[in-house]
Design a protein around this nucleic acid. Structure first.
Ligand code: FES
Ligand code: FES
Lengths: 146, 146
DNA sequence: TTTAATCCCGAGTAATTTAATCAGGTTTAA
DNA sequence: TTAAACCTGATTAAATTACTCGGGATTAAA
């Protein structure tokens, strides 16, 4: 999720390489590769190979819902123990099956109501993003002086 | 959660022994003991020791919210990685901190709106509970005939 | 007063999940 | 030709969850 948001924030000038996301968000490169493999399979991002390449959002940030991202990576938001099947207790429904189903729906609906664009628009996120890009800029400067 | 609901369902005739809950819900006795130790610390149940003893709800089922049970057992429903502190990224907030905070609140509110009594009143839960007590009754009958 | 039902406690374990690493590729702009 | 970037599968480390094990304490009832 953090990685997708970073991608949306930094999409203005062409494809975003995973190495940059890794740097800004402190997520290991190999791990990002696994995540984006799933996101690509889920058709949420497009890849551009070769130098100058990277990833792009497959759609406008307005039409990407948070829940789609989670689904692509986790293969579903589900609070039940039975994956919705209803067979916790030797093939039968457990007492709380319905409760967890309702909760799952609640979470799903909440995350459906929020798009990547909504998050990008939030002020406090802008602030965090600025801090992150400045930190990276400082690091580059420091290493060129050494 | 399942165990608390079982307790609420079978509270009509005195304290409910953990052995019965274990039998009906297919949860191991030792595990139940751990769970109820936490519930007792959370003041949601009272224990009665000795033969004929067991556990009782500390309050009316109407005034026990689902979220209280979860809190007592799990020590909080929290979707953030930082436990609400905001220090995912080397002491600073990560990009998605606010999102997970909002989600946590959403879940908390949902689970606050449901009491044990609400669950007990649901028809499909009555049905599951009936099936469970009959299965136990059959088992007892079968073993006395052997 | 003995017994057995029941709660009480702490240490240890197995299975699962999550986040990550490692060691190799392949593609393609410069 | 090179190097920047994506791609893939195998493996690992840490954390969590559900659970076991081996005791002990309390107390109603026989
Ligand atoms: S959660 Fe679905 S049967 Fe238990
Ligand atoms: S979830 Fe709170 S800082 Fe990342």
């Amino acid at each position: 999720m953090t990685a997708m948001l970073d991608l949306a924030l930094n999409a203005q000038d062409g494809p975003v390489p995973l190495a940059d996301i890794s740097e800004r968000q402190g997520i290991s490169l190999s791990y990002l590769e696994q995540l984006f493999a799933k996101l690509r399979r889920g058709k949420l991002v497009n890849s551009v190979r070769g130098p100058g390449g990277g990833y792009q959002l497959a759609y406008e940030p307005e039409s990407i819902q948070i829940v789609q991202v989670i689904d692509a990576v986790n293969e579903s938001v589900d609070a039940t123990r039975c994956q919705g099947v209803g067979d916790c207790q030797g093939g039968d429904e457990c007492l709380t099956h319905r409760l967890w189903c309702d909760l799952s729906k609640q979470i799903h609906d909440f995350l459906s109501g929020i798009s990547l664009a909504d998050l990008v628009a939030r002020q406090e996120i802008q602030k965090v993003a600025l801090r992150q890009s400045q930190r990276v800029a400082n690091k580059i400067q420091a290493s060129s002086v050494e």
